[in-house]
Design a protein around this nucleic acid. Structure first.
Lengths: 137, 137
DNA sequence: CTGAATCCCCACGGATACTG
DNA sequence: CAGTATCCGTGGGGATTCAG
């Protein structure tokens, strides 16, 4: 997502530091935000994967985005890359200790998601049925 | 984010259904993905809030995005809105039961985020220091 | 005070072609 | 195999204005 720092420096003088609420969460949210990071992490939870293995395991991801996603996860210290200078080349991706810790954190969220999937879906249906004409959100 | 369903129907016949991994998580990820949903939910965890209270509590959010975010959260059944037809008008936002459940789920993620904030930051510094010329990711 | 409507920028990300 | 480079469409979201 690449959230630029709050630009206007909050004109209304806030009594409590907003950083108490969101600061720090941003770092994680920026990873969850893009389309692929979580999927890559989940796939790597199953074990070490090569580039094309990740590519096959994650339907729809382009080579470009797989490269960008792994790079960003490496930068955040979630993923470790090992290159074997063979011919043809081989590179292994695996979760770091922090990466596994992160995957555990999102696993609970995934559980919640599965448990409430139908409830969310029905809530949306209800909403959409009640206002068919509106094209907001 | 509005993730379109996996388009190519996985040309390479995958042995295991990719939907086992991501399906269902998407619904939640689409909420976490945007810049503001989580912040709004976290703020509402503290209690019922009026529109301008949310606006002040969440630095940087525009009126437009606050409206869109609350609407989407309402559609997902996370937030309930109460309008008092006074003059000037007053509207209260509060979490539903599912909304509170959701906030509990992301609370653990927020904890993880705070605990690893410095580790992530230092990892990024390390990365950026090692390759100053690269402008990827 | 609580929005709705409009304009518009730009970052995310897909498609494609090229390289070691 | 494992990327890199380039072009380009789409939509998320900021700024601003109008309305009840």
């Amino acid at each position: 997502m690449t959230i630029a720092a709050p630009r206007t420096a909050s004109g209304t003088t806030n009594t409590h530091d907003p950083c108490d609420d969101d600061c720090g969460i941003r770092d994680v949210l920026d990873r969850l935000g893009d389309r692929w990071s979580v999927l890559v992490v989940v796939e790597l939870t199953k074990g070490t994967r090569r580039f094309h293995e990740l590519h096959r395991a994650i339907p729809g991801i382009s080579q470009r985005m797989l490269t960008l996603t792994t790079r960003r996860l490496m930068r955040d210290g979630m993923v470790q890359r090992t290159v074997y200078p063979t011919i043809p080349p081989q590179t292994d991706y695996r979760l770091t200790t922090m990466g596994r810790s992160f995957s555990a954190a999102i696993a609970s969220l995934a559980d919640w998601s599965r448990q409430h999937k139908s409830a969310i879906a029905s809530s949306r249906e209800q909403w959409d049925a009640d206002r068919p004409a509106r094209n907001d959100l």
